[in-house]
Design a binder for these strands. Sequence first.
DNA 1: CCATGTTTTGACAGTAGCTGTCACTTCAGA
DNA 2: TCTGAAGTGACAGCTACTGTCAAAACATGG
Lengths: 199, 199
Amino acid sequence: MTSPLPAGLRERKKAKTRLAIREQAIRLFEEQGYAATTVDQIAEAAEVSPSTFFRYFPTKEDVILTDDYDPLIVEAIKAQPPGVSPVKALLNGMKSVFLQFSAEEWESERRRQRIYQAVPELRARVMNQTVMAVDMLAAALAERDGGSADDLSYRVVAGAIVGVVVAITPPGSANGFGPEDLGQLEEALNILEANFRLR
Amino acid sequence: MTSPLPAGLRERKKAKTRLAIREQAIRLFEEQGYAATTVDQIAEAAEVSPSTFFRYFPTKEDVILTDDYDPLIVEAIKAQPPGVSPVKALLNGMKSVFLQFSAEEWESERRRQRIYQAVPELRARVMNQTVMAVDMLAAALAERDGGSADDLSYRVVAGAIVGVVVAITPPGSANGFGPEDLGQLEEALNILEANFRLR
DNA sequence: CCATGTTTTGACAGTAGCTGTCACTTCAGA
DNA sequence: TCTGAAGTGACAGCTACTGTCAAAACATGG
């Protein structure tokens, strides 16, 4: 009865169902592989009908693709004062979100990443999301120091930063990105930072 | 990029069939949209059976995804002397390939791009290919001046460069990348170059 | 506590991408 | 011209995904 936010019984049940589907899906993906697992199996394991599955997730891919904290990072970046360099702004933004992760959140995230790193079609979708983050980052950087998001300079800086972030998580990284990798992220961004003059 | 190697009749016929499938597919995609076009329709238009279609292209997506000149660009980059900066090496490499395009090749490439820019699932695959180009570029840059491809610096530089290239071709660009866009590419890379100190 | 309307759900049918198999045709090389 | 290899087409089957519709679960006003 002591639930944090969800007011109605309906909302609570929905959240529960969604969680159950995702958990069972990830479990089955780990056990049998992504392609070998059918939506029917997931639905049965989560004790819902196949049609209900698609009501919660538009496609089978979306079970893995959903990522809740990208917007949080964007907010954290915008909150950085204008004096901070673009690279440091992103680094601080990412750290401020990731450092608040609980052990369970890290573990869950790591499982998610292991799956999509291993499945090309999922990885493609995630990479696309990441590429689209260039737009968000460029806008955030522009807003932060009152410039125009259309300014090519912002896009270049944002592209370079995102490119570096992507570059340090190659397809082969089997264990996913964990707290122990924050160091390499910082190192890579420092290399970039050390060679940037802009702003 | 015309291969004057019609060795056997079989090879010629295969190339012809492949070309016919791709041409009809692109035509139908333009006319009816990607999702609304079935493989059966493409097969019929190209006068082959549906099973033959899948023998030439593993998936419907592959009709659009195939890109022949990425390896050419990599070669052109490796050919750049070590004195040239990484950014200039990539720019020169890309130019040396693109500037040899005929009007037909540009037009074909533009149609291809228009389609995958409009279809999220295709765009995702292309973006993933692009991200994987970071590895190739890092390796090419390392090989060019005799360093190790594992050196984080190379990955950072490669990531930044690829990030910038991606950043200037946003999802909305409806007309695709054409010869008239080479200028903006050069401009963006110059902005990056102007702010790079490394090497 | 009950009657109301709204939301959620499950069953069913249908489309299309993709895979595998098998026999038939077409071509290349000796 | 013969023989083996490669290309082709028809067919069957699985699964992701969509749409419809009626039943069940729930929220709300009386």
